[in-house]
Simulated scan of single mutants.
Amino acid sequence: MTDPAPGAVMRGAVDLSALRNRPASPAAAPDAGEPAGAVASLVMDVTDATFPQALELSRTVPVVVDLWAEWCGPCKQLSPILEKVVLELEGRVVLAKVDVDANPQLSQAFRAQSIPMVVALIAGQPVPLFTGAVPEQQVREVFAQLLQVASQNGVSGRLEVAGGDESAEEAGEPPLPPLHAEAYDAIEAGDYPRAIAAYEKALVENPRDADARAGLGQVRLLDRIQGADLQAARAAAAADPTGIEAQFAVADLDVAGGHVEDAFGRLLDLFAALPSDERGPVRERLLELFGVVGDADPRVVAARGRLASLLF
């Protein structure tokens, strides 16, 4: 599913010229009196309008671009890992977070056909890192390679955070409930079965724990797609149109890759094609994936409507 490959710069592969030439927002510039090489934060939200600032920063340090969306479950698992590793590198890397739904020009420029998608900028040039959620150890390995590539291209600076250490802000955050913390640690270690067990135990203790329910759906998805091959899964699904497990495999990969409507359409078509007494597992998988994407998402609303019409 993922293919970390920071070994070569994608010269010409992504057209950033229109974004590069746009004047940066004045609000993005450092305040007067701040030390040279200072930024407000090592983790920043970047928009179509403020992207030139990220390009400029990439001449000093590598800028890691995290292309994500609110509805994307794997994005929510990956983003905290990226933020943690970036902060630990203490100014040698900056993380630029791009909401692809709110910033269509950047999404198009980076050719974000599936998310989460992670790309780096070195001296204004894009470097492909990986697509999809990966465990923390793999993120660390990719970032180590990225720093080597950046150094080879003359980008080896370090930025300061204006106003002090960002960890002070984090110190004020309330601690996670113990089982949630256990699940989070397990996800970072790539131990999805342990994370699933922790979330399931949290739901036994409190069936109304919405965060645990959402986390459980997301980590189950990550566990199922680990090591999966999309082309092989599609071939198996094409050969067995009413095979539940074959169709599940492609739907999972589609949701993880951001192709939510394709996934829901596939499962709803399967639901319609099956006898009534065989539909239960498909309905359960749909409901789980609805939770991963988010109940308020318009694609979930539309899919729920079609599911209701098929049921009644």
Rank of each mutant, 00 (worst) to 15 (best):
residue 54 A to K: 15
residue 54 A to G: 14
residue 55 L to R: 14
residue 56 E to W: 15
residue 56 E to Y: 15
residue 59 R to L: 12
residue 59 R to G: 11
residue 60 T to R: 14
residue 61 V to Y: 13
residue 62 P to N: 03
residue 62 P to E: 03
residue 62 P to I: 00
residue 62 P to W: 02
residue 62 P to F: 03
residue 63 V to D: 10
residue 64 V to R: 07
residue 65 V to T: 03
residue 65 V to M: 03
residue 66 D to K: 02
residue 66 D to L: 01
residue 66 D to T: 02
residue 67 L to N: 10
residue 67 L to R: 09
residue 67 L to D: 08
residue 68 W to P: 15
residue 68 W to I: 13
residue 68 W to H: 15
residue 68 W to A: 13
residue 68 W to M: 14
residue 68 W to V: 13
residue 69 A to T: 11
residue 69 A to I: 13
residue 70 E to D: 14
residue 70 E to L: 11
residue 70 E to C: 11
residue 70 E to K: 15
residue 70 E to W: 14
residue 71 W to G: 08
residue 71 W to K: 06
residue 71 W to N: 07
residue 72 C to F: 12
residue 72 C to Q: 10
residue 72 C to W: 13
residue 73 G to W: 10
residue 73 G to D: 09
residue 73 G to H: 11
residue 74 P to D: 04
residue 74 P to R: 02
residue 75 C to P: 13
residue 75 C to S: 05
residue 76 K to F: 08
residue 76 K to Y: 11
residue 76 K to T: 12
residue 76 K to S: 12
residue 77 Q to K: 14
residue 77 Q to F: 10
residue 77 Q to H: 13
residue 77 Q to E: 13
residue 77 Q to L: 12
residue 78 L to D: 05
residue 78 L to E: 06
residue 78 L to T: 06
residue 79 S to K: 09
residue 79 S to R: 10
residue 79 S to L: 04
residue 79 S to P: 10
residue 80 P to W: 02
residue 80 P to A: 02
residue 80 P to K: 07
residue 80 P to M: 04
residue 80 P to I: 02
residue 80 P to H: 06
residue 81 I to R: 01
residue 81 I to V: 01
residue 81 I to M: 02
residue 81 I to G: 01
residue 83 E to S: 05
residue 83 E to Y: 04
residue 83 E to V: 07
residue 84 K to I: 07
residue 84 K to M: 08
residue 85 V to Y: 00
residue 86 V to F: 00
residue 86 V to A: 00
residue 87 L to R: 11
residue 87 L to I: 15
residue 87 L to G: 06
residue 89 L to W: 06
residue 89 L to M: 08
residue 89 L to E: 07
residue 89 L to Q: 06
residue 89 L to S: 05
residue 90 E to Y: 12
residue 90 E to Q: 15
residue 91 G to H: 07
residue 91 G to L: 09
residue 92 R to C: 12
residue 92 R to H: 13
residue 92 R to L: 13
residue 94 V to F: 11
residue 94 V to A: 12
residue 94 V to R: 13
residue 94 V to I: 13
residue 94 V to L: 14
residue 94 V to G: 10
residue 95 L to R: 06
residue 96 A to N: 06
residue 96 A to Q: 05
residue 97 K to N: 15
residue 98 V to G: 05
residue 98 V to T: 03
residue 98 V to L: 02
residue 99 D to I: 05
residue 99 D to K: 13
residue 99 D to N: 10
residue 100 V to Y: 09
residue 100 V to D: 12
residue 100 V to E: 10
residue 101 D to H: 08
residue 101 D to M: 09
residue 101 D to L: 05
residue 102 A to D: 08
residue 102 A to M: 09
residue 103 N to Q: 09
residue 103 N to M: 06
residue 103 N to P: 03
residue 104 P to R: 00
residue 104 P to M: 00
residue 104 P to K: 01
residue 105 Q to D: 04
residue 105 Q to R: 10
residue 105 Q to I: 03
residue 105 Q to L: 07
residue 106 L to I: 01
residue 106 L to T: 06
residue 106 L to D: 02
residue 107 S to C: 06
residue 107 S to R: 09
residue 108 Q to G: 00
residue 108 Q to C: 02
residue 109 A to Q: 04
residue 109 A to S: 03
residue 109 A to R: 03
residue 110 F to T: 00
residue 110 F to I: 00
residue 110 F to R: 01
residue 111 R to L: 02
residue 112 A to E: 03
residue 114 S to C: 10
residue 114 S to Q: 12
residue 115 I to G: 07
residue 116 P to K: 07
residue 116 P to I: 04
residue 116 P to M: 07
residue 116 P to Q: 08
